[in-house]
Amino acid sequence: MDCFIGIDYSGAATATSPLKNIQAYIAYPGHPPPPVLPNTAEQRSKYWSRQQLTHWLTEQIQSRACLIGIDHGFSFPMDYFQRYQLSSWESFLADFIHHWPSHQPETTVQSLRTGNPRHGDAKQLRLCETWTSTASSIFQMDVQGSVGKATHAGLPWLYAMRRQCGEKLHFWPFDGWQPEAGKSVIAESYPSLFKRRYPRENRNADEQDAYALARWLQQSWQQGIMPHYLHPPLTEYQRSQAKLEGWILGVS
């Protein structure tokens, strides 16, 4: 890999709103990750919007092999797939953006919640979440620290990157547990697993989450232990479930 990117995400406001909670750090081999700021001439803010962040990530993927960790859910529980007769992650994404077009201008996740036919139980967990002690349901939106809004805001942008980057980008584990050499890889991540390993120094909580993700991805790759995390010890049935529900990179 040429670089390692950690993203702390946010589902607040609209897709074009600059958000203090969105943070990006990028690490290159042998160097600790510095923060990455948006192109202020284009965005006129020192904070990322979800739209601007997606454009930047796409540029990185087009020019080099990146390992990217983002802290929002990449999919929903199996029950959701069965209830709405969705047979693949691709069909899930297409269905989701039809009912939750949170990427559209002047649209918020909150504004789409009322009367939305596509929803889930805030107590329901995916398999990967049951393997952690603190991960919450991706349907939970009104509790501090929950990832529900970030997930509902971020999924359309995953779909956009999938269409724009094509074969250059491997969505783990949906495209397979073992990425091809030379491809960029993007994976759901959970900063709480790693953030205490690294001194916080003068970073705030969101900055520390993004920093820790980039640092952990870099170190795990350079130390040769990333294959362990790319292949969690699942049964064949669990692996087939995770190919739809997704998995959190680092949970093993």
Rank of each mutant, 00 (worst) to 15 (best):
I7N: 00
I7L: 01
A12G: 13
A12S: 14
A13I: 03
T14Y: 05
L19N: 10
L19F: 09
A27F: 06
P29V: 11
P29Q: 11
H31P: 01
P32N: 14
P34D: 13
V36Y: 00
A41Q: 14
E42T: 11
K46L: 00
K46A: 00
Y47D: 14
L53D: 06
T54H: 12
T58W: 07
T58V: 08
E59S: 13
I61E: 05
L67Y: 07
H72M: 13
H72Q: 09
G73Y: 06
S75Q: 08
M78R: 13
M78I: 14
M78D: 08
R83P: 00
R83Y: 08
W89G: 01
F92E: 06
F96Y: 15
H99F: 10
P101A: 11
S102M: 10
S111F: 05
N116C: 01
L127W: 10
L127H: 09
S133A: 13
S133I: 09
A135D: 11
I138H: 02
Q140A: 15
D142I: 01
G145R: 05
G145M: 05
V147D: 12
K149S: 11
T151D: 06
A153D: 02
M161W: 00
R163A: 12
K168L: 15
L169T: 12
L169N: 07
F171C: 02
W172M: 02
P173A: 06
P173W: 14
P173L: 04
P179T: 07
E180A: 14
G182A: 03
S189L: 12
K195M: 13
R196L: 04
R197D: 12
E201G: 00
R203I: 01
N204M: 05
N204Y: 04
D206K: 00
A212I: 04
L213C: 02
W221P: 00
I225P: 07
L230M: 07
P232T: 14
P233T: 13
Y237H: 10
Q238F: 12
R239Q: 12
R239Y: 02
S240H: 14
A242N: 03
K243Q: 15
G246D: 03
W247I: 11
I248W: 11
G250K: 03
V251R: 01
